[in-house]
């Protein structure tokens, strides 16, 4: 349990870091150059680590199924949807909806035991827990400028912008 949570936490921090790097790229290029470069770098890194760790075994694809070769396209669908969502809703709301949607679908996939995932039966505590996390996301995304006088050091820009 603790190992899984630690790995998930590490992964989340790195996602946050990568989002910043990607946005730096996006400021100077466009979304498809950014996406292509990010995925290309991701491939190069995974492939290199794979070669170091596994050597020639990296090319042994025992148990390969055809759909594995297409799953990377999901990432492209995500980029398109995200860009469209942000254009229509603005980043804050779009990202909140996206995060809550991720949670909802993860719960659905766990419950159904989809794609050979260990099935985890739905229970009241899982539903309540998920709703509480979703509420936390909504609170996080609330503009603290409304709570005048409670701002933190780094928020100085926030209120003066208004």
């Amino acid at each position: 349990m603790l190992m899984g949570i630690t790995l998930a936490f590490l992964s989340g921090v790195l996602v946050g870091l990568q989002n910043i790097f990607n946005s730096k790229l996006g400021e100077r290029t466009n979304i498809w150059i950014t996406t292509t470069l990010v995925l290309g770098m991701g491939f190069a890194a995974s492939f290199t680590i794979g070669l170091v760790v596994e050597g020639g075994d990296l090319f042994v694809l025992k148990g390969m199924q055809t759909w594995y070769g297409f799953s990377g396209i999901i990432g492209v669908v995500v980029v398109v949807s995200m860009v469209q969502g942000i254009q229509r809703l603005g980043p804050t709301f779009a990202v909140s909806v996206m995060m809550v949607s991720q949670l909802g679908f993860a719960l659905l996939f766990d419950t159904l035991g989809w794609l050979g995932l260990a099935q985890i039966p739905i229970s009241p505590s899982r539903v309540v827990g998920l709703l509480v996390v979703a509420a936390g996301i909504a609170i996080f995304k609330t503009d603290p400028g409304r709570l005048r006088g409670l701002k933190l050091r780094g928020a100085k820009q926030g209120i003066t912008n208004k």
Binding site: I74, V77, S81, M82, Q84, G85, R88, L89, M99, Q102
Partner: peptide
């Protein structure tokens, strides 16, 4: 679109 992106992730 935002829901689809989340589902995709």
């Amino acid at each position: 679109f935002a829901l689809t992106a989340g589902a995709g992730i």
